[in-house]
Design a protein around this nucleic acid. Structure first.
Lengths: 301, 301
DNA sequence: GTGGCAATGCGGGCCCGTCAGCTCGAAGTG
DNA sequence: CACTTCGAGCTGACGGGCCCGCATTGCCAC
């Protein structure tokens, strides 16, 4: 029994006549009549008794009607579900990001995504990069955003752009008079930056060596945002990524670091897991949001 | 999503490869590949990601897989149900009959029916004819067998044959010496027969009048089988239908009544209700059983 | 006769199937 | 290292069957 035959059968049962059923299904009466006859032929027994030019359901028809209706409703439900999937009206998007992109890029990406797909559940995970990789591998997140593009081979990293370093100064610090700082400006200052043996720390040391200066933090952090409190407390100048929206925090001044290294902004996905439609839509929004944020950075802040 | 597409999708999900799925469905690999591609085209999103010549289900495919399997199983169940209906392997047949056919015809009909369709539930109702008509109208029975063909217009009566009267004599009665009796033989005997204002009583009286004798029962019954006890007790000679297998009862002799009226044996159905396949099969068996019983009656007893 | 209903005949389009042939990647072999 | 082989899936051509609309007929009731 084909799905179409199910629909026709149900329509005739509900409408009572072939003509009315044909109207319900928006097809011609002969077409429906043919399908009905063919169905009965295939089944091997009659579904309706023709009496005086009218139809009367046989006991067999009544017997299978309930099942037919249930199945047809199920098919219709599946059809709706698939159109929802096509249009991206259902599902859950989980994005794992390290704090800077989570605070700088995801809000914008989520906003535009939500405007386009209001019914999709969104979940944001702020995590260090090792945790992001684990989540991508386990399927706990399908998209990741981090400030690193050197990743295991089973993780695909698409570089969306790059962002430099920023210096966080306590309010009133002498160096706040300059619009941008260089590494040599920081000589003799108490520095707060990433702990050793991490990529940003290495790159910073490399750049400093190239410029003939020495940069050695006296206070090490692992996540840039934790520098906020230390700078506010006057413990020193922080050398951190310029992505995080530092201006939102009171009590510190932000100055870009000239000639410093760059962080790559990478969009991470698992190579062993395919993206769902909604994941792809979110990926597009993250790309767009990133370019907007970077553009704003260049012109505005 | 067509039913075929559902099957193909499930087969590919289960088999893992297109070729294996095609083997499962006994079709060629290109055919299945086409259906799968067409399905994805119709859905608007891909179900499998092609990587290195292999297929990997997308999140959407995993999402709808459970529903698809459930629906497909439902369709398969309906398919089995319809073949059961066609072959008459399912259902319930309810037959209402008055006592003589219920004891003489139905056992044979049920036996041959059961031999052909062992899985069908059978139900026999022994009831007076008024109750039979009510049951047919209400759908509590779909077939009826009675010794009357004059019935309301909404009941169809198909006459399967006819049966005459029999005389039930107490063992040792003088008339037992004759192989058959006539109405005039019964003059002066105590008679047991149907109550007045019923069809057999009227016909009996009519036949007696035609033969110039008077038949007036001194003991009235409504159902012929109830005469057994009265005859065994020596209360008189019973004039009843010859259909009921009277020889099964001890303590009475049976002699046919010559030149008596005939009972029509009628197979009853409701004109407003259609017969199911199994009902029709049972109807055929009742017809056959009736002709066998009547033929045996002519030759054997 | 007229109107409503179901069935039939005819023609066209789409789906589905087989068959033959193709590309691509992995694995084996000299 | 180049070649072959094999298995995976895709493409194109062709045919049959299902589904559809249009025109028409048969049947019944009013």
């Amino acid at each position: 029994m084909r799905a179409r035959q199910l629909e026709v059968f149900i329509a005739v049962m509900r409408a009572g006549t072939v003509t009315a059923a044909a109207r319900m299904l928006n097809i011609s009466q002969p077409a429906l009549s043919q399908i009905l006859l063919h169905t009965e032929d295939e089944l091997g027994f009659t579904l309706f008794e023709r009496v005086k030019g009218r139809l009367r359901p046989t006991p067999e028809a009544l017997e299978i009607f309930a099942d037919a209706e249930r199945l047809s409703a199920g098919l219709e439900g599946l059809r709706r579900k698939t159109t929802d999937l096509r249009l991206g009206r259902t599902g859950l998007v989980r994005v794992a990001a390290s704090p800077p992109p989570a605070l700088a890029i995801l809000p914008r990406a989520f906003t535009s995504f939500r405007a386009r797909h209001p019914d999709i559940l969104l979940r944001s995970h702020m995590a260090p990069i090792a945790a992001i990789v684990d989540m991508l591998r386990a399927g706990d997140a399908s998209l990741g955003v981090a400030l690193d593009d050197r990743l295991p081979p089973d993780i695909e990293a698409e570089v969306l752009g790059s962002v430099g370093f920023a210096c966080l100064l306590p309010i009133g610090h002498a160096l706040a008079g300059k619009t941008e700082l260089t590494l040599s400006d920081l000589a003799g200052e108490e520095l707060i930056s990433y702990r050793g043996n991490t990529r940003p720390a290495d790159e910073l040391a490399h750049a400093a060596r190239a410029q003939g200066v020495v940069v050695s933090p006296s206070l090490e952090i692992d996540v840039s945002i934790s520098a906020v409190g230390f700078v506010q407390a006057g413990l020193g100048i922080a050398l951190v990524d310029a992505l995080l929206p530092w201006h939102q925090f009171a009590g510190l001044a932000v100055r870009p670091l000239a000639n410093g290294p760059e962080f790559p902004i990478a969009l991470l996905t698992s190579r062993t897991r395919a993206l769902s439609r909604v994941d792809e839509m979110m990926r597009d929004q993250i790309r767009a949001a990133c370019s907007v944020v970077l553009g704003d950075d260049k012109t505005g802040a």
